[in-house]
Design a protein around this nucleic acid. Structure first.
Length: 450
DNA sequence: TGTCATT
């Protein structure tokens, strides 16, 4: 029998002509052997020059390790024998991931912080290619107990200068977890830039811009001038967000709907489908030569400029309209439900854009958006900028204390032309009493004017 | 004017 806390040892640098019976005498001098197995190739049965060894007593293993590891070289070998706990033993997790470090902390700073809890074998701040700290580190203790002590004492215990939330101290990902993490990252990237869903979404937005403006022309006859302006602005906004036709938080921008109001169907939108269908042949020519309805029609926004110029906008309109008329009846069925499912193509995209990494795109691909409506979330901003290209990320900044939007954010595209198209179209876009400010994001090292 | 980051 072996002890409960026995240690399985890995034995390396064994001559390949030595079998279990030959090795046994070498190790038996430190105690009774429970199991000794030469490691062989699963398929060929070939001796791999190493073995696993378990003593009945934990103490025997420690003695053997002390006496032999790196101490003695077996005949025919040019490196000393290895005697150490097998990887499978692990001694429990003892490597920690440390997050929310201030980016100015060095290895030494981190080591000082973790030293009180045990003997540190390794301490490394993670750095990018440019040497800048990523604000996190790995700390490896000699034992699991020490690592555990550090977690208990330090995790969440304080917020370091420059960190956005309290210190994170946890066991580092295992190899397997790292793999999963990588897969998730890849998957989320693919989800966003999937050309099919994106471009369909863009056509849809454009189409709805046309369709809804037509509806408004008809409706404004019944509305007061003030109401008309508000409605136009709402519709322009809605036009950029296909899913908002039914109901999304965007709808809450309308002054008549409180934050808890079941969204949207109370807007003029329900009148749209018949008008949209009937008015299709009357869709005005795109304002290449600025039509009289320019203001109403686009708010200076020409989403289709971001589309392939080779495609006739009317064709695009038609393509999208089929989709539009097909999905709208489904929307009717959802009236009155507080959180209707959104039966648009866009809604079939991954529904959690907040999971996307907030990656900056290349230089010139990142735009800064200011004066966003307070209600705007990442998702709405994403929708708003989808028509201009492949959006890598869309991030509205939120005050961590209050959870309130700071009314600005970033959108990153995968190419500079999309960013320029977005700026051209969306800078000055009016929402309520405010106009969006849309510019290229300032580079980090830009000289601040103030 | 990019806030959670996994050698």
């Amino acid at each position: 029998m072996k002890e409960a806390d026995a240690i399985k040892l890995f034995i390396g640098q064994i001559p390949r002509n030595l079998e279990e019976k030959d090795l046994k005498p070498i190790f038996e001098q430190f105690g009774k052997i429970y199991e000794l197995t030469v490691i062989k190739d699963k398929y060929t049965g070939m001796h791999k020059g190493c073995a696993f060894l378990t003593y009945c007593a934990r103490e025997s293993a420690l003695k053997a390790q002390n006496a032999l590891h790196e101490q003695k070289t077996l005949p025919g070998m040019n490196r000393p024998i290895q005697v150490k706990p097998a990887d499978s033993e692990g001694r429990g997790d003892r490597k920690l991931f440390v997050g929310m470090l201030g980016k100015q902390l060095s290895d030494t700073d981190v080591r000082k912080m973790f030293e009180p809890f045990g003997s540190i074998e390794e301490c490394t701040v993670l750095r990018g290619p440019d040497g800048a700290s990523k604000g996190c580190a790995f700390v490896k203790y000699q034992s699991n107990a020490e690592a555990q002590a550090a977690i208990s004492a330090l995790h969440g215990s304080r917020t370091l200068p420059g960190a956005s939330s309290s210190l994170v101290v946890k066991f580092a990902d295992t190899e397997k977890e790292r793999g999963i993490r990588r897969m998730q990252q890849v998957a989320s990237q693919l989800g966003v830039i999937s050309p099919m869903s994106l471009h369909l979404g863009a056509y849809n937005a454009y189409t709805q811009a046309l369709v809804q403006q037509q509806a408004l022309v008809a409706q404004s006859a019944y509305l007061s001038p003030v109401a008309t302006v508000a409605a136009v602005q709402m519709q322009q906004l809605a036009a950029l967000n296909p899913s908002s036709i039914i109901a999304t938080p965007i709808a809450s921008i309308t002054p008549s709907s409180g934050t808890n109001t079941p969204p949207a169907i109370a807007t003029p939108v329900p009148a749209l489908p018949p008008i949209a269908v009937n008015s299709y042949p009357q869709v005005p020519a795109p304002p290449n030569g600025q039509s009289a309805s320019e203001t109403l029609y686009t708010n200076g926004v020409h989403p289709y400029q971001a589309q392939s110029p080779a495609l006739d906008p009317l064709q695009q309109a038609y393509t999208g309209m089929q989709h539009y008329t097909a999905t709208y009846p489904a929307a009717y069925g959802l009236v009155g439900q507080p959180f209707p499912h959104q039966p648009t193509l866009v809604a079939q995209q991954p529904q959690q854009p907040q999971q996307l990494q907030q990656r900056e795109g290349p230089e010139g691909c990142n735009i800064f958006i200011y004066h966003l409506p307070q209600e705007f979330t990442d998702s709405e901003m994403l929708q708003m900028f989808l028509p201009f290209g492949n959006v890598i990320s869309a991030k509205v900044f939120v005050d961590r204390a209050t959870n309130q939007s700071k009314c600005f954010g970033f959108v990153s595209f995968d190419n500079p032309a999309s960013a320029q198209a977005a700026i051209q179209s969306m800078n000055g876009f009016q929402i309520g009493m405010k106009r969006l400010k849309v510019q290229l994001k300032r580079p980090k090292d830009a000289n601040r004017p103030y």
